[in-house]
Design a protein around this nucleic acid. Structure first.
Lengths: 210, 210
DNA sequence: GGAGTTTTTAACTGCATGGTTCACAATACG
DNA sequence: CGTATTGTGAACCATGCAGTTAAAAACTCC
């Protein structure tokens, strides 16, 4: 973050760039990608049309910036939940519950930009970004599992990769149900159950069908 | 199935209604809902524009018909997989694997109309239909679990409702990964793992099969 | 073969939208 | 105080789109 100390010469902007992006997020979140018109963005972001094009570029570019900011914020919160000093089971439950909470925020659109909106955007760059985001999420959970093995919370033969993917699959299922209107309380309970499902010790071998 | 024996009076249609609907499914599947124009449907379905309006109605109506047909077909295949005469574990695995296969079919769009396209449609009727479809899927799995208890495949205290929801959540996760391009083989393996995750006996649970 | 009925082909209309342009307003610098 | 520079507001234009209409075509019934 390098701050530019030289003051801009001309008329100062009447909007805050980050704030406008935040509002753009809400617009895309509530209307999808194709459903959003430039006028929607102009109205929602509080930025005039020419300024919008000058500062942010066209719709696709705006969406990419929104996606990146959204994913970064979500990733940060996920990291915080996963790697807070607490038992593995609580980390996992917090991870999933946080997903649920952000997907059921009132006053904001339901669901998740990354899960519900972005996959439909027919754009190579968006798809690539999503793939890496998904892989990154699973990798994060897997790392937490490894820490859990070190801490003795789970046995050393715990199938970290498989379980990590299953956690993210379950998270996506929760998010989609949120989008369809399942109440938050139900989903929070399901999040706990999901954490337990993945972690509860098995009888016999941890990996089935060895 | 009532066959209409009276021949139609005027000029015969140059297209098959069911076939056209099938093609419409592909169009929506590959382009989403908002991304589809009437011209896309005209081109994709092989039906003239006025005929399209006369026979199928507008885009929203067409999409609803497509959804119902798609859900019916998918439900039928799911029933077949779940309730075929085989052990519970195989039923579940087949159920999930079938989902994966239909979501990774070549020559067709990836993912699932119900999971990847329909949730984004901002329409009360569509959302309602989706909710009932989701609930119906979970109920189907739950019923299969009950049968499994009767057959002694799982203990009587098996939490059928919770596990059924988890199965559908996992299925949605698989489907979304399919949409993002995860190869079929990976997902098929993950489907098996998911079935095992849900079914493997927990330590501390009573098992009937001695 | 002709009349009546239905589908198809092609063109048309009106409206929303994306992207651009232009004159004007606001601020920094000399 | 004037000028250069940048942002803003409103109007503008071409395009694409949904939905309709008019006439030609294909078929059944008489």
């Amino acid at each position: 973050m390098v701050h530019n100390t030289t003051k801009p010469r001309g008329r100062p902007r009447s909007f805050d760039e980050a704030e406008a992006l935040e509002k753009a997020t809400q617009v895309f979140w509530s209307k999808g990608y194709d459903g959003v018109t430039i006028d929607d963005l102009v109205a929602g972001m509080g930025v005039g049309r020419p300024s919008l094009y000058a500062v942010f570029g066209d719709k696709r570019t705006i969406f990419l910036r929104v996606l990146r900011a959204y994913a970064a914020a979500k990733g940060a919160r996920a990291t915080q939940a996963l790697f807070a000093p607490q038992p593995l089971r609580d980390s996992l439950a917090d991870f999933l519950k946080h997903d649920v909470e952000s997907a059921t925020q009132k006053g904001s659109a339901r669901g998740c930009l990354l899960v519900c909106v972005a996959p439909l955007v027919n754009d190579a760059e968006v798809q690539g970004f999503l793939q890496s985001a998904v892989a990154g999420g699973a990798a994060m959970v897997e790392r937490r599992f490894r820490d859990g093995i070190s801490a003795g919370d789970i046995p050393p033969d715990f199938p970290v990769a498989v379980r990590a993917i299953q956690v993210t699959d379950l998270a996506r299922g929760l998010t989609m149900r949120a989008q369809l209107g399942t109440p938050r309380e139900t989903l929070l309970k399901d999040a706990e159950e999901a954490a337990d499902l993945v972690l509860l010790p098995r009888r016999g071998n941890a990996t089935p069908e060895g």
